[in-house]
Design a protein around this nucleic acid. Sequence first.
RNA 1: GGGGAGAUACCAAAGUGGCCAACUGGGGCAGACUGUAAAUCUGCUGACGUAAGUCUUCGUAGGUUCGAAUCCUGCUCUCCCCA
Length: 423
Amino acid sequence: MNFIEELKWRGLLQDVTPGAEEQLNKEMTLGYVGFDPTAESLHIGNLVPVMLLKHFQACGHRPVALVGGATGMVGDPSGKSAERNLLDEPTLRRNQAGVERQLRKFLDFSPEAPNAAVLVNNYDWMRQFSFLEFLRDYGKAITVSYMMTKDSVQNRLDTGISFTEFSYQLIQGYDFLHLYRSLDCRLQMGGSDQWGNITTGTEMVRRIDGGQVHACTAPLLTKPDGRKFGKSEGGNVWLSAEMTTPYKFYQFWLNVSDEEAERHIRIFTMLDRPTIEALVAEHRADPQARLLQRRLAEEVTVLVHSRQEYETAVEASAVLFGKGTAEGLRRLDEATLLAVCEGIPRHEAQGLAEGANVVDFLVEVGAFASKGELRRLIANGGLYLNQEPVQEAARALAGSELLHGKYLLGRKGKKNYFLISIS
RNA sequence: GGGGAGAUACCAAAGUGGCCAACUGGGGCAGACUGUAAAUCUGCUGACGUAAGUCUUCGUAGGUUCGAAUCCUGCUCUCCCCA
């Protein structure tokens, strides 16, 4: 399988250096992607470069996942409109461990495979560098005017950029040189926002060692309206089950628009071309069945979580979004109810005073942050309890409304559920 | 080193003594329509309060004033020009 061709039809290729394809066709090649540990978990935006590595391996090449323990200490200016605060050391190390653990899951590291994946951390080779040594041996190879031409720097010239973030590309560039020297790694991949940083690397390898290395990038995903990809109601969609429950994760994919679904199924699944084309055709014939969304959600949830967690998410979705009438909900036995609600936010209450006011109660247990907000929501008709709309804010709650005498299933808008359990 | 400009709510950006909890746009949330879609339309978007209203907010610390986001001073940060 030709890697570059594969990326092309999947819509995963934005830029590629001339000669990259020849190199890949010539021999098994090492290629790397860097992940800076800016959070304890990767999010679905990072899934794009992860897929690059997966396809790279599937095409017979050897993927290197680089965790940016060192680069993460400095801060990448790419795509940032302002200087960020540096993460402290303990946070960074915790994040690093989390990211490493996740990366291991996506690639084949089994030692018997000739193209087994490799995991490295640039902190390992950057930490022993002295500042002077780095300046003398590597900083000399790159001119300031070259560094200034990068978009990531240009965009910050008016609003300000520290020397620290300005230097980021040198550190990342050195990574490439290091991997080239130590592993004969010849390709760096990433999102298109990384193009500037990556080419600084290829340039350093060329000027310092006279080596020829290559780069390719994937387009930055945006929603059809141009907004950033990867956020859903209330924030990022994380790969960690603790930070984004598998249910929410599944729901995110199930909710993508038709347009996005057609693009995403090529990007985020390993399904082959005929399979995908058939699915797309079938979906277009009967869009309301949302076949594409279902399949996409299945593939990605199974990849990131597991088959079992996927199945739980499907069951929960069926109950919450099916013909979920109030009576249907009451008929569920307690175990099923709890299983269904596993992935949704949960709040504990110390007991329910008979006749307690809805607004006061929900804010008290922490389901909502502000009474004003909740009142507005109710006035708009957006609050449901046990699948029935709440008409007025002053309504009182009765103990008889509780499911199994201790649960209250709330819903904000069409799809945001929460469960309150009362002891 | 010298001179100039600036810091406003999630972001962008008005406001230059009371009419400002702060125009507007984006984002976000909700409603209608639908397919848990897109597009469109509508409402909301500091906290508390049914409301009248009260409280906290315009980089930061003080000051002037009956009254400040708006005026003055110190501090922090940013940008531009000259050297």
